[in-house]
């Protein structure tokens, strides 16, 4: 069981730190969009702002995803769930989190394939006039999805420990 605990603490710590940094991404997006309106009003509009803001948004929600799980922000339908005991919740979650893990694994599979493509043929570029290479954002997405997968596994381990009657203290 100490192995499970080690895994949980390792993954949760990493995701917590990444999430704490990522949350300031809101100001990055804001700055890009403000620069976009300033450059449009006072000089020639910048080519890169909209796409850059989109990259920032994707990095924001994908890298921030695991931290949002830790915070419990991801809504669940609690028509039945809400009324269950902690133990019962843990037991059901142990099974249903496998569905979540499966979804994330397929998401990652497509992500890795698409990222591999972005390195082929001299590097995939966005079909825009700015033509940024797409591998950086795709790599970030793959890392984020992997971290999300690890966080989901960590949640599974926590439920296993709960079922064994052990106490779990959250990082958040």
């Amino acid at each position: 069981m100490t192995a499970l605990r080690k895994f949980i603490s390792f993954v949760d710590q990493i995701n917590y730190r990444i999430g704490r940094v990522t949350m300031y991404g809101i100001f990055v997006m804001m700055a890009i969009l403000l620069w976009s309106s300033i450059s449009k009003t006072f000089f020639n509009p910048s080519l890169w702002t909209l796409e850059m803001a989109q990259f920032a948004m994707v990095a924001y929600y994908i890298l921030g995803g695991p931290y949002s799980i830790q915070m419990g922000s991801n809504v669940r339908m609690d028509l039945l769930y809400g009324g269950w005991s902690t133990r019962r919740k843990a037991a059901v979650d142990c099974v249903t989190v496998l569905f979540l893990i499966f979804y994330l694994a397929i998401l990652l599979w497509g992500g890795i394939d698409s990222t591999a493509y972005s390195f082929k043929y001299g590097g995939e570029r966005s079909p825009t006039a700015w033509r940024p290479y797409l591998w950086p954002i795709k790599v970030i997405m793959c890392i984020g999805i992997t971290l999300m997968l690890l966080q989901a596994i960590s949640e599974l381990f926590k439920d296993i420990l709960r079922l064994r009657g052990e106490e779990i203290d959250n990082v958040v």
Binding site: N74, M77, D78, L80, W84, V92, D93, F99, F102, Y103
Partner: peptide
């Protein structure tokens, strides 16, 4: 049915989507 299990909503929807696609 997946939503009723109380799993996170995005997990339930995403799971059905990828299973159906596969």
């Amino acid at each position: 049915a997946m939503l009723l299990t109380g799993q996170r909503v995005f997990g339930a929807i995403g799971f059905v989507a990828v299973i159906a696609a596969l």
